[in-house]
Nucleic acid binder design. Structure first.
Length: 434
DNA sequence: TATCCACAGGAAATCAGGGTGT
DNA sequence: ACACCCTGATTTCCTGTGGATA
């Protein structure tokens, strides 16, 4: 926009015209969406059979056992449950069972779980997001279940159940939910927990394990060939004929198989590859599109994650970024991060500085998100620390941080540690590492 | 070999901000 | 207005930890 002669604006009308004239890649792109329920689920026969076996008694009005489903992300746990629920509904004429899905990573507190179940059944937001005592909601819920789901079954599917099991009051709510039936007259409930952490059972109360953990189904990861089959079937629905070039599906499958056989990832890759081909108005989707898709997915995920982080987390990351600028080895220690963070927050009105303990948590979250790595290291006399490294190129990170208004200014901050030329302990760290 | 540094990270308490019914 | 509730973020308190150093 600096030079009026050279500036050429994006012509949106022309773009749409060209788009509509261009090649049509997708027939039904929804078939690659995570929410899509396919007509058949390849390579999940054993799991379908097990779940169908355990839930079949609902057709005759009996109470199915509570159960747990284990498996890594993208192994088809949720898809299988949804699939079975559809099938059950097809085979019932009266008293169709209710299925209430609760994603515990979003609906993550005991109160909200109860409120969500209640509001789903009644079909409105009658229970407010906060304010009422839990036991009041619990009592209301019992009454509602008996009144509205008379003589039928209500399946409560708790997806990512591990998110609440170790939180405050997590065991209590799970215990209450497993014991719902004892307080109900005509309605019956059945709990299905879904977890991708095999070890999560350890954090459960023995009382909960005794009623929830008896029946469990483990979902194995898909291998590359199985992923290929899944993609093949979906691709036939999603793409127009002859759009996919040779080797596209096998590449998606191979890339996803590397990441513990994650079918969701494989489908995402295929979809993104298609979208990239579409964007460039190409007639076919090629292996290059898949590689580009892989790159873009990772990049998009990082950008979205960082932009969505709370301000304090962004400031912790900014501190790490600033240190990395002055540090060729890309080696940063937690103590320095704490100091820079304090300096940054002192300059920002309305933003308070945090304790070391809290910074430590934020650092751990950044590790979980794959933005940094942190390795615990003892330096003997010089204490212990975490050696932090950025996973991505610092300039890439810099661009993201610069696009966040509140952070922008902080990027000009020159850390006093650097000014005083005293990245004290770092010197010791370098000596050890080199 | 004992000491000791500078932090890690678990558990519980606290606070502020949203809400409720009476 | 009041007593009470729930939640997420944070602090406070605390017990490890591992290897360089005296």
């Amino acid at each position: 926009m600096t030079n009026n002669n050279e500036y050429k604006s994006f012509n949106i009308d022309q773009f749409y015209k060209k788009y509509l004239k261009g090649p049509i890649i997708f027939k039904n792109r929804n078939a690659l969406a995570p929410s899509y329920i396919p007509v058949e689920l390849p390579h999940r026969d054993k799991e379908i059979e097990e779940i169908a076996g355990k839930t079949a008694c609902a057709l005759r009005g009996d109470t199915p056992p509570n159960m747990l489903c284990y498996g890594m992300t993208g192994t088809g746990k949720t898809a299988t449950i949804r699939y079975v629920s559809h099938k059950i509904a097809q085979h019932t004429k009266t008293n169709v069972p209710w299925w209430i899905y609760i994603n515990c990573s979003i609906i993550s507190t005991p109160y909200r779980i109860l409120a969500h179940i209640y509001n789903t059944i009644i079909g409105s937001e009658k229970i407010p997001p906060t304010g009422l005592p839990k036991d009041v909601i619990f009592k209301n819920l019992l009454g509602l279940l008996d009144y509205k789901i008379k003589d039928s079954i209500c399946f409560l599917v708790l997806d990512e159940i591990d998110m609440i099991a170790n939180g405050r009051g997590g065991n209590e709510i799970l215990y209450d939910l497993t014991r719902l039936n004892e307080n109900l007259d005509s309605c019956r409930t059945s709990l299905i927990g879904i977890s991708n952490k095999l070890k999560f059972k350890d954090s459960l109360d023995p009382r909960v394990i005794s009623s929830l953990g008896k029946d469990h189904i483990t979902f194995p990861v898909y291998n590359a060939k199985e992923l290929g089959d899944i993609l093949d079937k979906r691709a036939k629905i999603a793409f127009n004929d002859d759009v996919l070039k040779e080797g596209v599906i096998s590449l998606c499958a191979a890339l996803a198989a590397k990441e513990h056989g994650d079918a969701r990832k494989a489908l995402q890759l295929l979809r993104k590859a298609g979208e990239i081909a579409e964007r460039f108005q190409n007639k076919n989707v090629s292996r290059e599109h898949v590689n580009k898709a892989q790159f873009e997915l990772e990049r998009d995920h990082t950008i979205d994650y960082i932009k969505g982080m709370p301000l304090q987390a962004q400031l912790v990351l900014t501190s790490i970024y600033l240190l990395s600028l002055y540090n060729k080895n890309n080696v940063i220690i937690s103590g320095d991060v704490y100091e820079i963070h304090s300096e940054l927050t002192n300059k920002m009105p309305g933003v308070r500085s945090l304790t070391r303990r809290r910074i430590s948590d934020y650092i751990n979250n950044l590790v979980l998100a794959g933005i940094i790595t942190a390795e615990k290291k003892s330096m003997g006399k010089y204490g212990a620390t975490k050696i932090i490294k950025l996973c991505d190129d610092p300039s890439f990170l810099g661009k993201i941080l610069e696009s966040i208004d509140k952070i922008k200014e902080g990027l000009n901050h020159s850390p006093s540690l650097i000014q005083k030329n005293k990245i004290r302990i770092n010197n010791n760290v370098f000596r050890k590492l080199n």
